[in-house]
């Protein structure tokens, strides 16, 4: 009897410690870019369980976290949103005692304007906003945003434009020779008119899923390089275009939320993502480049030479890192955008 009591007590203690180990980190990330094996690896290493919830736009993520009561620990905003997150106190500084891998961040991604010295954020991946074209439908030059704004006849009614305000308006501004955060009224007027006219040629304004491009439900569109590469790997006809009029380079960054349930576990996860091998796992899955030093060693061969990753030398100059625009500029953009979305 005594022994039975002892065993059940032991079982209880074991059970208790197992319950303590059943720690959870809730990861709020962009859809379809979190490799499942990475999560498994983290769980195996730390015993912390990870749940992943998807979002499809910076605005969605921001709105949801602002409301509170979300239960998430980590979020991955784009560079031009990072400052908003910090200013509004939605995220906390990184705990350098836990995030010891911070030095693995590549020097060019370390002292960034949106988070100098990486106090709050670490790179998840970076990429470019360009175009995707199905060459079996249209075999002209894919490296121009004219494909979207003044589409060739073959592509009219077959275009998808991602509903990301800053991406699309900035692309249209560059199409008219302007700069990011342009305030010139003449250019903005042209931008509005171009968008309103071009819209008639668009089939959808959706987060065009990879399948739709592969199946040729959509034959061209504004897309991000990693998504374009994943589509191309399933359908050779697809090419990625770098608009010669100018295109954006961006980075999505992991941050820990102020109302995180498990900030310590979240910091451990941030640290884990900065291991070159893990950074490479994200890149191999999502097809975006990493900001972590030494990840190349673990990269799949096709990633090293992919035209979606390696910008053609003559078009490198057209790329510019995206910046957040002042509120008064955003106001005008929002108005153009709302008109467009109607």
């Amino acid at each position: 009897m005594k022994r039975m009591l002892a065993t059940s007590l032991a079982a209880l203690i074991a059970g208790g410690s197992m319950a303590a180990a059943d720690e959870v980190v809730n990861f709020y990330n962009w859809g379809n870019v979190t490799p499942p094996e990475l999560i498994e690896r983290f769980e195996a290493e730390t015993g912390i369980r990870v749940t992943v919830t998807d979002y499809d736009s910076n605005d969605t993520a921001l709105a949801r976290i602002r409301q509170g009561g979300h239960g998430f620990d980590l979020v991955v905003p784009s560079n031009n949103y990072v400052e908003t997150w910090i200013e509004e106190g939605l995220v906390i500084p990184l705990d350098r005692d836990i995030v010891t891998n911070i030095d693995n961040i590549a020097p060019e991604w370390m002292d960034v304007d949106f988070d100098p010295g990486r106090q709050y954020s670490t790179p998840y991946f970076w990429g470019t906003t360009g175009l995707i074209v199905n060459t079996s439908v249209y075999d002209g030059d894919p490296h121009t945003s004219g494909i979207i704004f003044d589409p060739p006849e073959e592509l009219s009614g077959r275009i998808n434009v991602v509903p990301e305000m800053s991406d699309i308006i900035t692309m249209a501004i560059r199409y008219h020779g302007g700069q990011q955060c342009e305030t010139d009224t003449d250019i903005l007027r042209q931008v509005r008119d171009t968008l309103m006219d071009a819209r008639e040629h668009w089939l959808a304004m959706d987060y065009g899923n990879i399948d739709a491009y592969v199946a040729n439900d959509i034959s061209a569109g504004v897309y991000w390089n990693g998504g374009a590469m994943r589509a191309r790997l399933q359908n050779d006809d697809l090419v990625y275009g770098y608009p010669q009029e100018g295109f954006s380079v961006w980075m999505d960054n992991v941050m820990v939320l102020s109302d995180a349930q498990n900030p310590e576990g979240a910091m451990k996860f941030v640290n884990f993502l900065l291991e070159p091998e893990n950074a490479a796992a994200i890149s191999n899955f999502s097809r975006y480049a990493s900001g972590v030093v030494g990840y190349e060693a673990f990269l799949e061969e096709e990633m090293r030479t992919a035209p979606e990753i390696v910008t053609p030398p003559e078009l490198v100059g057209a790329g510019a890192f995206s910046i957040p625009c002042p509120q008064e500029v955003n106001d005008i953009y929002s108005q153009i955008w709302t008109e467009l979305m109607q």
Binding site: S57, D59, A63, N160, L203, A204, D206, W337, T338, M341
Partner: peptide, 17 residues
């Protein structure tokens, strides 16, 4: 496809993008 909006989507749009 996000281009042919109905009222529900229009409302959603104002709270998001």
């Amino acid at each position: 496809g996000g281009r042919t909006l109905m009222l529900g989507n229009l409302i959603d749009l104002q709270f998001g993008q």
